[in-house]
Design a protein around this nucleic acid. Sequence first.
DNA 1: TCCAATTAGTGGCATATGCCACCTTCGCCG
DNA 2: CGGCGAAGGTGGCATATGCCACTAATTGGA
Lengths: 154, 154
Amino acid sequence: MDQAQFPGFSRCNNATLRRAARRLGRFYDDALAPTGLKGTQFGLLFQIRVSDEPTMGTIAEALIMDLSALGHTLKPLIRDGYVETFADKDDRRIKRVRLTPRGEIKLDEAIKLWDVAQQRFENMMGKEQAAALRATLDQIAALNLEMPTAAPSI
Amino acid sequence: MDQAQFPGFSRCNNATLRRAARRLGRFYDDALAPTGLKGTQFGLLFQIRVSDEPTMGTIAEALIMDLSALGHTLKPLIRDGYVETFADKDDRRIKRVRLTPRGEIKLDEAIKLWDVAQQRFENMMGKEQAAALRATLDQIAALNLEMPTAAPSI
DNA sequence: TCCAATTAGTGGCATATGCCACCTTCGCCG
DNA sequence: CGGCGAAGGTGGCATATGCCACTAATTGGA
């Protein structure tokens, strides 16, 4: 009964992806709401935890985010005391990031809620389809998508 | 050789989706750059074209966007003269939207560039996998994902 | 007919993301 | 060892999105 998709529209991979992202984002956001974290922030905290005192650039690369965007996104987390940064010993240009004890606790708390949402979503989509989707999405993330406009000259 | 994905991380459907969206978004954005439009704006203009003088609510629903977010996103397009709004004849609460002649031209121009990016992407992913991906994403968009916290009464 | 509940949008505030210009540090080379 | 170009971030500006509180216009009764 729902006509949410107009034929021509859903042919755009980008638009379709964004639309699904909005829907899924709100779902995870709602689930995490009790912690005060958004889905994005959760993902960022998690990434910081699994990395070993990563640099800004490392995180940005892993998350395929613009470095400056990462800086912006990190600010509220630093302000709220979940994350802290410190200069690298050997190269003062490099800034490393880590969770504070408060951040570790908050992340543990969020993971519990995330797990509920994750399970709930996978029950609806089916674990296999969800896994296949993530595989495809990772494939997109790994694509070398530069327009061949440049790179001719050495 | 790239270790872009840390195991635990890519298990989150939401984070994986957003990450792919960032990558793909930049790709389409780059392709559309000559028109001055972002991928999102392109999608919005397209949606307006294929709908018949849709209302704000209709568009928001079709794109799974928050109504106020749609209003915000529409502003630069109105400012640049691509879109105009007008009150519904029968219900003055309702605001309808349509492309201006300038908007139609701009959209045509953008579609040419979009097509290049779309083809390019599908050549890398394979048309079938791309179609399968869109189908899955549409499925997500159609999911009824409310946490069962409410709705018991009645 | 008049008011209560509903519907459709708006405006303000906050985060999410990107691009670009600019500043520091480093590493390398003459 | 002094300067140039690269590497790593920051800040400013603009769009993308959401939530919430609030306003205006409708609709349904009593």
